[in-house]
């Protein structure tokens, strides 16, 4: 380990080389611990409940495809997926529209009370949104956002609100970093500040906007507490609620729970393997404040 540290500085080479064995042993161990339980769940779905009971940690023998088949054949599974997609999509759109507009003003307008307004939004980072969840539920039911399909909005709108502070904290410095000369040039060319916002700033800010969109989508996709309270009607339930309900309703059917759980993980895993860069970038953005 010390060997690499004492290499002379000429050792900075672009082609990535193989690391030393210690690095790999450690990396493999950490990666194995991280995914072993997930692999167990996925493989478990290929076994029968009898097989699992006889040898809990064994491999599928023989491989059974029918459990996965029956989950995929259930409308409940697809309905949950659709609900989650609608709610996470709606939340993302809402966060984008409200967050980008507010961050733009906070970054590029000079006015009295600007820093106060920014501080006001950042208050949301200092306490868990869960603390207000009971009155929030009452408020939502008073304005009928827990009734029928309106319950979608009853989840989406508060989730947009929860996500606004971090969105503004990430976007504002990004928007503020564009040089004033760019805005002046745009105004000389005859476009006003909104035109500058729409035609120049937004297209140039795509990386930051993609990051906040991904963060909002992830937060909504995984959310549990608010949907638990608001989506009392099972036909509106999101994936986390669906998995929980399935596991309590079919508590004897271990293989079925494993199959249902692992299928419900798939969209998230696929999405995240594509968006990993944005998520990490976003977290770093949050770190830099």
């Amino acid at each position: 380990m010390a060997a690499t540290a004492t290499l002379p500085s000429t050792a900075r080479r672009k082609p990535v080389r193989w690391g030393n064995p210690v690095t790999y042993v450690l990396a493999l161990a950490v990666a194995a611990v991280s995914i072993a339980p997930v692999i167990y769940v996925i493989l478990g779905g290929f076994r029968t409940t009898g097989q699992i009971a006889a040898d809990p940690a064994g491999l599928p023998r023989p491989w059974v495809w029918s459990t996965y088949g029956s989950v995929v054949g259930q409308t409940v599974f697809w309905r949950d997926l659709l609900n989650s997609t609608l709610i996470a999509g709606g939340t993302t759109v809402g966060v984008l529209v409200l967050g980008v507009c507010a961050a733009f003003v906070l970054a590029r307008y000079k006015f009295r009370g600007r820093e106060g307004m920014y501080t006001y939004f950042t208050l949301g980072l200092l306490f868990p949104a869960a603390a207000g969840i009971l009155p929030l539920y009452l408020l939502l039911s008073d304005i009928h956002l827990t009734d029928g399909y309106l319950a979608y909005l009853g989840v989406i709108i508060p989730q947009v609100a929860f996500q606004l502070p971090i969105t503004i904290v990430i976007l504002r410095p990004f928007f503020a970093a564009f040089p004033m000369e760019l805005e002046d040039a745009a105004s000389i060319d005859g476009t006003d500040r909104l035109g500058f916002f729409w035609r120049i700033l937004l297209p140039l800010s795509r990386p930051a906007i993609v990051t906040i969109a991904v963060l909002a989508f992830v937060a909504s996709w995984n959310a549990f507490l608010l949907p638990l309270l608001v989506l009392q009607n099972d036909s509106l339930q999101t994936v986390p609620l669906g998995v929980l309900n399935f596991s309590t309703e079919h508590s004897q059917d271990t293989a079925g729970i494993l199959a249902f759980t692992s299928l419900s993980m798939m969209p998230a895993l696929l999405f995240f393997s594509f968006a990993e860069r944005q998520i990490v970038g976003g977290l770093q953005g949050a770190v830099k404040g």
Binding site: G132, L139, F162, L164, L194
Partner: peptide, 23 residues
């Protein structure tokens, strides 16, 4: 412009994050 662009965010944030804490 300032009010139009920040108003919705302020409203949603106030109503669904801070007001519930007050209640």
């Amino acid at each position: 412009e300032i009010i139009g662009l920040t108003g919705p965010a302020l409203l949603v944030f106030t109503l669904f994050v801070l007001v519930p804490i007050g209640f």
